[in-house]
Nucleic acid binder design. Structure first.
Length: 303
DNA sequence: AACCAGGAAACCG
DNA sequence: CGGTTTCATGGT
């Protein structure tokens, strides 16, 4: 009958599910997962089969994260893959000890990190999704960016239903690859945004671009070079993707407006910091500049 | 209405 | 190269 299969994931020492939930709920327009009563609902397609998950803190007091599979139990290999995905997505495998040590003695970062100790760097494991989201986010405000993503997902992705709940999936590369730029423009994508996004989708669909070829033994600098070779992708986008998808802990979107605002806020300044100052501050955060950036971003959201 | 937004390319000395 | 201008489109 209603037999439910669960997987429990070990959590790292410093882990605060509440902070993770807060990050995941920062936009009302987020369409690729839902959060309800401290449970995250998320769907994947693994080798053609949908896998529906409810992710929450386990019942045991050990601080485990548990995945409950909905609408049928996947086979063990798919459960393992789903579990790997969640581990990567919610960043359950990184030891933040060195980062916390470093932050502790940093006047700017110290208070920020102390206040949100246990927040993880929420990732975007799919390269296509990460690149798409980042291209969408170029030079527009976040609210609009979430709207554009939603339109992309609703128009070209599939939607699963389970017990009245909708699970939306990011479009497949092959599907996006055949979309015409005009279709995206009619959804209020700018022409260049549409072209870049479709260029990326075609590259991923053709196998000319993959996550594997951008990760180790590839260095951050090499990954950046490969990504910025694509028209429409500059240093900001490359580092953003390196940070959220490729998991380079030192990825650093130097020119990011949100980062600048967060630094300004911490310094109590009226003006945004000059780039030279941003670089100087960040040099103390190596090799964790990506985590520093993510924590600083978290100071901008609601409370 | 003006200015801004989790930029990138093209252009120019 | 390093700085400047243009592009593009909604949000506030």
């Amino acid at each position: 009958m209603n037999q439910q299969t669960r997987i429990a994931l070990e959590t790292p020492k410093d882990y605060h599910f509440g902070h993770v939930i807060r990050y995941l709920t920062r936009s009302e327009s987020e369409c690729l997962h839902q959060v309800e009563e401290n449970t995250v609902y998320k769907a994947l397609v693994i080798r053609g089969e949908p896998v529906l998950m409810a992710i929450g803190m386990g019942d045991s007091p050990g601080g485990q994260v548990s995945i409950r599979f909905l609408g049928g139990t996947p086979d063990s290999e798919r459960m393992q893959e789903a579990s790997d995905y969640v581990k990567e997505w919610l960043d359950l495998g990184t030891d933040l000890g060195p980062f916390y040590d470093l932050a502790q003695s940093d006047p700017l970062l110290g208070p920020v990190v102390e206040q949100r100790r246990g927040l993880r760097l929420i990732g975007v494991p799919s390269l296509l999704e990460a690149l798409s989201w980042t291209v969408i986010g170029q030079q527009i405000n976040l609210a609009f960016a979430y709207n554009l993503k939603k339109r992309l997902v609703e128009n070209f992705g599939t939607c699963l239903q389970h017990e009245g709940r909708e699970f939306r999936l990011f479009p497949e590369a092959g599907r996006l690859a055949e979309v015409k730029p005009e279709e995206l423009q009619s959804l209020q994508f700018s022409r260049t945004k549409a072209e870049t996004l479709l260029r990326v989708a075609r590259l991923v669909a053709d196998g000319g671009l993959s996550k594997e070829q951008l990760q180790a033994p590839c260095t951050l600098q090499e990954a950046e070079a490969k990504l910025t070779a694509i028209k429409g992708i500059g240093p900001w986008t490359a580092h953003y993707v390196a940070m959220r998808c490729l998991r380079f802990t030192d990825a650093f979107p130097l020119t990011d407006v949100g980062l600048h605002n967060a630094i300004r806020l911490q310094l109590g300044d009226a003006q945004k910091p000059p780039l030279a100052l941003v670089e100087e501050l960040a040099s103390a955060w190596r090799p964790w500049r990506g985590y520093a950036t993510f924590y600083l971003w978290s100071t901008l959201g609601p409370a």
